[in-house]
């Protein structure tokens, strides 16, 4: 089932995340990185933006079957380093919906902005989610 285009622009309520030092260390250990620096590893923004099950919440709002979903692309822009202990605000929106191969492949673009408490932007994330639709069987 194709994604309803009225979901373009869907925006989650902004939420806050505290970068607990233990969480940062756990993430670094899980990716095999050295946790010593206190700076967030470059892909930690994905964990921040995904807090409170927010990625699943977006897919559910768009009525997407999780079994059909793959991560296709990911982009990060870094403006101010994220450090252990700070509190961040996350806003996430669906900024594009498009299809390829006559709708067999649909793509959802989710953009996130991660801000510091003073309002400055720490970083941006842009994720492209691929939804693999079954090829509709023709009548035998």
């Amino acid at each position: 089932m194709a994604i309803d285009r009225r979901h373009l622009g869907y925006t989650l309520p902004t939420f806050d995340v505290t970068v607990e030092p233990e969480r940062l260390a756990e993430f670094a250990a899980a990716i095999g990185a050295d946790a010593g620096s206190g700076l967030a590893p470059p892909t930690f923004m994905k964990a921040i933006e995904g807090e409170h099950g927010s990625s699943r919440a977006i897919l559910e709002a768009l009525n997407v079957d999780l079994r059909r979903v793959l991560h296709a692309e990911q982009q990060f822009d870094y403006l101010v380093p994220i450090v252990a202990g700070e509190r961040l605000s996350v806003s996430r929106s669906v900024t594009d919906l498009y299809e390829k191969k006559n709708g067999v492949m649909e793509f959802i673009v989710i953009e996130s902005v991660i801000s510091k408490q003073d309002g400055s932007i720490a970083g941006r994330s842009r994720q492209v989610v691929l939804v693999r639709h079954p090829v509709t069987a023709t009548a035998a």
């Binding site: 296709a72 982009q75 990060f76």
Partner: peptide
């Protein structure tokens, strides 16, 4: 490279 010097990082799966 220090994490603080990374400006962009993009991937395609």
């Amino acid at each position: 490279f220090p994490a603080s010097t990374i400006r962009t990082f993009n991937a395609r799966f």
